Simulated assay, not measured.
Amino acid sequence: MASKQILEKLISGQEAAHLVVLQDTTKQSHLPILHAFLSSSISRKHGLVLVCLQDPPARLLPLLGSYANAVCIDLCSQLPSYAASTKPGPQFGSVKIRPALPSELGDVLALELKQLESPKTTVLFDSFNPLLDWMPLSLIAATVKNLAFCTNDSCRVVLPIHTDSLPETKTLLSIESILHQHMSTHIKILHLKTHLKAISDPFDKSIKRSQLEFQSVDANALEFIVDLEWRKRSGKAINELSLVRCGEASSITISSADHLKPAPTPDAVQPNQSTKSDPTANLSFNLTLTDEQRQAKDQVVLPYLEAQHESESTGGTIHYDPDEDDDFDEEDPDADLDI
């Protein structure tokens, strides 16, 4: 029986995911993976916190069905364009709705996590991009830090981000650097055909041309690639490539996609190959020896090596060759003593 993919273990809660950054593009949505986290949390009776930023609670809460061990933090209703007539009340079925300002997110989330009192808890954002419009980078960094502080082995936070719809005033590099500092799990959603086209050899006839052509109607396909980076508490990072197939009722099937990894380039440096530069290169003088110079060097007899050529040990005898300038004192140093 094949072992489970790490992605499957993280979704089911068998491994601690902590702060999960779910990154997608317009070519392939993160929603199947986000629904998998939601379904897994409900089936395993986790405490559930929904943070609504992109969609109103009335659109997301029906996904919970009759599940009651949940609370909704409503940040979406603070938008000026949000219609007051569509705002839900403080209760939607059996789920409490807690309105809050974006600047209050850390304090409100910590309070709701204490009130849930569940052995395991999942915090799900519908999207993190609206906060990028409201907040400066300094406040975004503080918010991400507070979210990471709430996570532990029994509490995980899933944070989706759309990398191709960021505000013009903020760059992907600055946002990724903030997330990369605090996240422990990075799930990158890749469009399957785009990935195949990027790694394929144009001279490889084993892949049909029809499999590589991207069509606009094929966006958000039922099969996609997940590039996973998972950091353990020990500091070890594990990378994994998975193939995800969507089934009925938002179910997914996860399998290994190691055969879809890009092939190493022939110019890549091998692990056992030294990458140090030659310090003797580009010098104005020569530090190497010719064969004649090396032979003459080997024939030089070094002094004080007689002991290495003796066949028998002399038992610790000291060999001394007196020098003509040696000054020996023949007088008895104790002659003036009455001994």
Rank of each mutant, 00 (worst) to 15 (best):
A2I: 09
Q5N: 08
K9W: 05
L10D: 00
L10C: 02
S12W: 14
K27H: 01
H30Y: 07
I33M: 00
L34A: 00
K45C: 15
V49C: 13
V49G: 03
R59C: 04
R59G: 02
R59F: 13
L60M: 09
P62H: 11
G65K: 15
S66E: 14
A68I: 04
V71P: 01
C76H: 11
C76F: 12
S77D: 03
A83H: 08
T86S: 10
P88R: 11
P90A: 10
K96L: 12
A100K: 11
L105T: 06
D107R: 15
D107I: 12
P119W: 15
K120F: 12
V123R: 02
F125M: 03
P130S: 08
P130T: 09
D133H: 12
M135K: 04
P136S: 07
S138C: 15
V144F: 10
N146L: 07
N146A: 15
F149T: 11
T163C: 06
L166R: 08
T171Y: 05
I175C: 06
I175V: 08
E176G: 05
H180S: 12
H180V: 05
H180R: 14
Q181M: 07
L190G: 00
H195I: 01
H195F: 05
P202H: 09
I207K: 14
S210F: 11
E213H: 08
N220M: 07
N220D: 15
K232N: 11
G235S: 08
N239W: 10
E240Q: 14
G247A: 02
T253A: 03
K261F: 03
A268Y: 12
N272H: 13
N272V: 10
K276I: 10
D278Y: 09
P279L: 08
T280G: 04
S284E: 04
S284I: 06
F285L: 03
L287D: 06
L289I: 04
T290L: 13
D291L: 11
E292P: 00
E292W: 01
Q293P: 06
K297F: 09
V300L: 07
V301C: 02
Q308T: 09
E310Q: 09
E310P: 00
E312L: 11
E312F: 10
T314M: 00
T317A: 07
P322F: 12
D323H: 07
F328R: 07
E330G: 03
L337E: 06
L337W: 14
D338H: 13
